[in-house]
């Protein structure tokens, strides 16, 4: 279990990025975090990843405090951040250097197959599209077998069609070992598609506003029964979190999810 306990972060310039955020994520649960800009989503994720130190509070995974990058926590960034001098295979296996070559190769091949990039294993990152690069990035984070996977707006730079197919690839990877997933996104549709729970955060200072459970079977599609009502609950919460001042542009993914190809789907519990 990933537990975030009364976490606060004040930056050196006095910005209160996070204030008293507590959240418990069950093992194997997928939690999506949405919120207006400046609500501390990314700060929260960086604290959980151990990249930054919290001003107050703590992050624990199965009781163990995280204050530096930890083997139990994998992170994929907003940009793919592949190393351009490594082939796709070596990028995906970047976190496995300590393992025997044969084991590493097996794990990497398996992960690349799950994200549909077997044929690209020996390519350079520059030869891949943005969506393919992001798949490698997620595979790289998952290949070492972390207990928790953190995703920081990993699909935000991609077009809507690509994003929809990446949701499937992500769930395919997730289904193998069922890690805890925390995904930060600004796309409400993405949050409802992926999350068991959607956590809405509020800016100035960043804090939790509301948690909305999404009790729909996977795979979820925007036309599914109940999808719209879940989405509306999230949008309403977002609206309220911003004091009704600005409308949250959360419907960007509409046409995309409709275009999701039906092939290669798995059934989720």
């Amino acid at each position: 279990m990933l537990s975030i306990e009364a976490l606060s972060k004040v930056y050196a310039d006095g910005t209160r990025a996070l204030e008293d955020v507590s959240l418990a994520v069950e093992a194997g649960e997928i939690v999506a975090i949405v919120g207006g800009s400046g609500c501390g989503k990314t700060t929260l994720l960086r604290l959980v990843a151990g990249l930054d130190r919290a001003t107050q509070g703590a992050v624990r995974i199965d009781g163990e405090v995280i204050d530096a990058p930890h083997p139990a926590v994998g992170l994929a960034f907003q940009e793919a951040r592949l190393l351009p001098w490594l082939r796709v295979r070596d990028n995906a296996g970047f976190g496995l250097q300590h393992m025997a070559t044969a084991v590493r190769r097996h794990k990497v091949d398996d992960a690349l197959a799950r994200v549909g990039l077997t044929a690209h294993a020996d390519r350079w990152p520059r030869e891949l599209s943005g969506g393919q690069q992001q798949r490698v990035s997620i595979a790289r984070a998952l290949v070492p077998g972390p207990k928790a996977l953190l995703l920081d707006e990993p699909f935000s730079a991609l077009d809507a069609m690509t994003r929809a197919s990446l949701h499937e690839h992500l769930l395919a990877l997730w289904d193998e070992s069922r890690p805890t997933v925390v995904i930060v996104t600004h796309d409400v549709e993405e949050a409802v598609t992926l999350g068991d729970r959607v956590v809405v955060m509020q800016p100035n200072p960043g804090r939790l506003f509301e948690t909305i459970g999404v009790d729909l079977p996977r795979p979820r599609r925007p036309l599914d029964l109940g999808f719209d009502s879940a989405k509306h609950r999230v949008l309403r919460a977002l609206d309220a979190s911003l004091g009704g001042r600005e409308r949250f542009p959360g419907t960007a993914g509409d046409s995309a999810a409709k275009a999701t190809p039906a092939t290669g789907r798995r059934r989720w519990g």
Partner: peptide, 21 residues
Amino acid sequence: RKLIEVGRVFRLSPLALVRRV
């Protein structure tokens, strides 16, 4: 700096960071 951060996420030692990144 973003690539160096990748090295940090994978807990590379300073020497490994130099060699691999």
